[in-house]
Design a protein around this nucleic acid. Structure first.
Length: 767
DNA sequence: TGCTCTAGA
């Protein structure tokens, strides 16, 4: 009997004790609320239980669940259901997933882990969690159902929708939990959350004991957090047989999930349930020959569609902000010309990318323009977008998609420890996703600017999961905190390259987060509590030693948000002049700190205007403030001393620069004796100071925040430091014997001699 | 002399 087993296996000792007696002699446990569902449900006393129409946990049928849903009282609150509820209920019953509710319940009840595949429009994200809810009796078990999303907006908007569907107040029975905003309460039985948030939670509760079921949605996106959660959940499932897991994905590659969640030994695959979506057909066109210049070809295609295809909006995928703005400019000019010379309808062009302010992002939802004159041809809307329109944002009314087949993707090179962005061909899965965007409201067309042969033979099936394209320092730290000691044998769906793992372990060891045995140190435990890269976390924790915790806290927050300096292409000079007001001669970190201090000294309400006058991003600064508060709370919890050096003290800035070294001693470059170039220590990469820096060329040793790989190798956000600080703060890393022969080693040897001489002198003076 | 795809804690 599944009903008995899951309770027996529960990890709450009080319950366990009661249940064991229940098995032996049932009757005296009739009043145990946890066991109420095992006995005649009609005797259940509270209104909530009555309204579930006698549902038995993990034995519910569709008919029973529907009866409970049909009201007239809300089973979760006991209140009368509204008219809106019944209106929505009618529509919900028309969704494709509803037809398979019985099948879902059967598989859910018979298995611990289930893979669910549903295309867009199937209703999986809103309905499956509710199907689960009616089978989990959360009011009796006291355990919640969680559904994870890769993005915050999705978690928020889906929670809102489901709260409406269940006729409850958002934040009460149905809520969401994302960074900076926990909209749940003790009443919450269904919680939408970001995958990263659930991962954070697992670090403090490795058994995820608050949940009876975890639903991983959009698993095909393979975010870093989803990948780690999958590995983790496989282990938790063994420890907690009462925990149910549903992995939801778009159609592609469902078998991979089935195999992963099955058992290799006996060839067992996790069961799969597939539900068709509800989209319109999209006709695909390829170019007969490869295109030499994809931007050129894309613009031509858009204009051809505008000139010859029936009404309907166009979505064009390009790779980055600059490319998009340039394309928009040209489309606007050409569109006007076509209207004048060929009497086409008006063309309205919108750019769309992530760093665009939200109000401008919203404008893409404006309807297409009307005809220019009565009886004229209808107007058309063109949205030129990055990948953001592929998954994160859905624009209804798109009928034509133009897909050049490229996107900017993160790649990681473990050899030189550099993450960078590269324009790369997309995958087949991406191409399909892009095409699908044309069929949301009616049948559409997708123009692929590559040959059919290239699609079949050159595009990879799936975009490589993020875990294969990232520096894993913070992932490894998280795994260690999660209690995974043996990383080599951790069951990753796609194991990262051994070199990437080695690099991460090495980096964490230098940062004193892991000891030489690879075990978590106190520093590592503390660092893992911060939503930051390990280097930033270590810098923050060490800052109190240098009496500048408050300043380093500000700098850390500033480094965790998008660039605070704004530089519009037509006002570069003005923007640069504005920036120079804040310049600090010792570097960009201190320049950013000056900006932040100036921002914080403003009267409330003056920020927005001041920012635009000074070419600063109000959004970034506000969000830095938000991040700063979150980090400060963690520091206070760790009882880190926040006292700082007085601003008038001559060591004020030196202390800050030394604290920077405590986190970033591995990101240092030294000027070479010839030319303008610098060389990174140990990796020996030749680099240049990024032209945006406020730092002069004469600084011999510089610490950098970021390595930018473009036409040249640049280091960005740099501050000058002293070699004696580095040798003092990170003696292991700056062990002279570990350096290759060369200019850097020679300089370090000289520094060591200088330190020794000074020590001798000090000693003599003391005598 | 400048190049930030997207997302997350």
């Amino acid at each position: 009997m599944p009903g008995e087993r899951e309770i027996l296996d529960s990890d709450r000792p009080t319950k366990k004790a009661k249940v064991s007696t229940a098995i032996n002699g049932a009757s005296k446990d009739m009043d145990n609320p946890y066991l109420a569902h095992m006995y005649a449900p009609s005797t259940a006393s509270s209104a909530g239980q009555d309204l579930f129409a006698g549902l038995t946990r993990h034995q519910t049928t569709t008919a029973q669940a529907q009866k409970a849903e049909d009201g007239p009282f809300n089973p979760f609150t006991g209140t009368q259901l509204s008219k809106q509820y019944f209106d929505i209920l009618k529509k919900r019953r028309d969704l494709p997933v509803h037809a398979q509710r019985n099948e879902f319940l059967r598989l859910y009840q018979e298995n611990q882990i289930l893979v669910f595949v549903g295309e867009t429009g199937s209703g999986k994200t809103t309905q499956i969690p509710q199907f689960v809810l009616y089978d989990e009796n959360p009011l009796q078990t006291g355990k919640k159902v969680a559904c994870t999303q890769p993005r915050r907006v999705a978690a928020m908007s889906v929670a809102k929708r489901v709260a409406d569907e269940m006729d409850v107040v958002l934040g009460e029975e149905v809520g969401y939990n994302i960074r900076f905003e926990n909209n749940t309460s003790s009443k919450t039985v269904l919680q939408y959350m970001t995958d990263g948030m659930l991962l954070r939670e697992a670090m403090n509760d490795p058994n995820l004991s608050r949940y009876s079921c975890i639903i991983l949605d959009e698993a095909h996106e393979r975010t870093l957090a989803t990948d780690i959660l999958m590995g983790l959940l496989k282990e938790v499932a063994l420890r907690r047989p009462d925990l149910k897991i549903v992995v939801m994905s778009a159609t592609l590659d469902a078998q991979k999930f089935q195999r992963y969640f099955g058992a290799k030994e006996n060839d067992y695959n996790a069961p799969l349930l597939a539900v068709p979506g509800r989209t319109h057909p999209v006709e695909i066109f390829y170019t007969p020959e490869p295109e030499r210049d994809y931007v050129e070809a894309a613009l031509r295609t858009v204009l051809q569609i505008h000139g010859s295809e029936p009404e309907g909006d166009i979505l064009l995928f390009l790779t980055g902000e600059e490319e998009i703005e340039e394309a928009c400019k040209r489309l606007r000019a050409e569109g006007d010309e076509m209207q004048r010379e060929y009497d086409t309808g008006p063309l309205k062009v919108y750019a769309l990318y992530g760093t665009l302010p939200p109000n401008q992002q919203q404008r893409i939802f404006d309807p297409a323009p009307p005809p220019a004159r009565a009886g004229g041809k209808p107007g058309r809307k063109v949205v030129v977008s990055t990948n953001i329109a592929e998954t994160s944002l859905t624009i209804d009314g798109i009928v034509y998609v133009v897909d050049p087949g490229f996107s900017k993707q993160k790649v990681y090179n473990p050899r030189i420890r550099v993450e960078s962005l590269l324009v790369s061909p997309i995958s087949k899965a991406s191409a399909q996703q892009r095409a699908g965007r044309a069929g949301r409201t009616r049948p559409g067309k997708c123009f692929r600017l590559y040959t059919e042969d290239a699609f079949k033979k050159e595009l990879i099936d799936q975009t490589y999961p993020e875990i294969l394209r990232s520096n894993l320092a913070s992932t490894v730290l998280e795994l260690k905190k999660l209690g995974i000691d043996d990383l080599v044998h951790f069951d990753f769906m796609d194991p990262p390259a051994p070199e990437t793992m080695m690099r991460a372990l090495e980096e964490l060891n230098y940062l004193a987060c892991l000891d030489d045995e690879g075990d978590l140190t106190t520093m590592g435990r503390m660092a893992s509590e911060y939503p930051l890269d390990p280097a930033l976390a270590v810098m923050l924790i060490s800052s109190s030693e240098f009496q500048c915790a408050s300043e380093i806290l500000s700098i850390t927050a500033l480094l965790s948000v998008p660039q605070v300096f704004v530089r519009p292409s037509h006002k570069r000079k003005e923007a640069d002049a504005a920036k120079s007001q804040f310049a600090h001669p010792d570097g960009d970190h201190l320049t950013m700190l000056n900006v932040y201090h100036a921002f914080k000294s403003l009267d409330s309400g003056a920020g927005q205007r001041w920012c635009s006058e000074n070419y600063l991003s109000f959004r970034s600064l506000t969000s830095a403030d938000n991040v700063r508060n979150q980090l400060r709370v963690i520091m206070e919890k760790q009882e880190i001393d926040m006292k700082t050096t007085d601003f008038t003290d001559r060591n004020y800035y030196n202390n800050i620069r030394q604290a920077l070294c405590a986190g970033f001693f591995m990101q240092v470059a030294k000027k070479m004796s010839t030319g303008k170039s610098y060389k990174t220590v140990k990796d020996n990469q030749e680099v240049l100071l990024h032209p945006s820096t406020m730092l002069g060329q004469e600084n011999e040793w510089v610490l950098y925040n970021e390595f930018v790989l473009t036409t040249k190798n640049y280091i960005r956000t740099v501050t000058s430091v002293k070699p004696e600080w580095l040798m003092d703060i990170a003696p292991n890393y700056y062990d002279i014997d570990s350096f290759e022969k060369g200019e850097i080693k020679t300089a370090l040897v000289r520094t060591a001699e200088k330190i020794a001489r000074k020590a001798k002198l000090d000693k003599r003076l003391q005598r």
